[in-house]
Design a protein around this nucleic acid. Sequence first.
DNA 1: ATAATAAAGGATAGTTTTGCCCTTATTTAT
DNA 2: ATAAATAAGGGCAAAACTATCCTTTATTAT
Lengths: 145, 145
Amino acid sequence: MFTKATEYALRATIYIAQKGSEVAKLGIDEIAVAIDSPRSFTAKILQLLSRDNHIISSVRGPNGGFYLTEKAKSLPISCIIQAMGEEEMLEKCVLGLKQCSETQPCPMHLQFKPIRKQLKDMFSNKTIREFAAEIKDGVIFICNR
Amino acid sequence: MFTKATEYALRATIYIAQKGSEVAKLGIDEIAVAIDSPRSFTAKILQLLSRDNHIISSVRGPNGGFYLTEKAKSLPISCIIQAMGEEEMLEKCVLGLKQCSETQPCPMHLQFKPIRKQLKDMFSNKTIREFAAEIKDGVIFICNR
DNA sequence: ATAATAAAGGATAGTTTTGCCCTTATTTAT
DNA sequence: ATAAATAAGGGCAAAACTATCCTTTATTAT
Ligand code: FES
Ligand code: FES
């Protein structure tokens, strides 16, 4: 469905939102272990989400690390997908036609459209905070290796 | 959603099912133009669907080409996805956890599962013939460049 | 000030996917 | 038989994706 990079972005952001805070930032090592992802690759992704997209906040130096502001936690999960440049996944034709079109639809369009709509809604209507909250309950996981 | 290879496989198979027959086989050139795909890459894919998976039939030499038997046209579209080795797309965790699990679900599992089910049903319940038939009506397209 | 810490950034390598070209094998038509 | 047509197959190159390593910069604690 998504690239590895986007999967790591989603898992990392949700994990940081759940476990970290401005006064208890999380280091890249802890994050990579927690979400079971390659350390350096994950670092690059967090850099992108932080530097270019301001979804994640980061501070260098001792006691530095990553965290999400309360405002950032209120963003819909779809903003991560956008930041990773995969928003077209939620728009494009399932058969790969140049563009998904109502006037020149592919054979799957009619059935696929409402399903894609549900996906879009799922990513648009729930915030990072809401997804993160579920993990705290202990019946939901961000890693199951 | 799917790789380019699988998109081409789906488009090509549906096109061949609609336009071709045992007495009017389609050449790779016509197919590639019709579905707007790279010729040689598409040839490799048809080879795979033909040689290894017996979804498509092929004959070499003059008047040769590709076609689908009536039996093959009755296969569900999901068999193409399987042949292309992408069946896990319909099973795996949307966040990329090692495995999608009921006992250790990710934060999206509960919402995602029914959506994925609809996708699976769409691919399992409709045959290649049914998707192909829609194109004949002229209001459905397999290429819109 | 200095040293330690942790993210930022740059370079590079490995892998997979996508795409192209050219030769070979098979079938048909003459 | 021979020639022509057409898929099969091998090899390779370009691009995208994934991953690692090392240096630099910023921040904090002492
Ligand atoms: S045209 Fe194919 S999904 Fe809309
Ligand atoms: S565990 Fe993530 S979708 Fe099932």
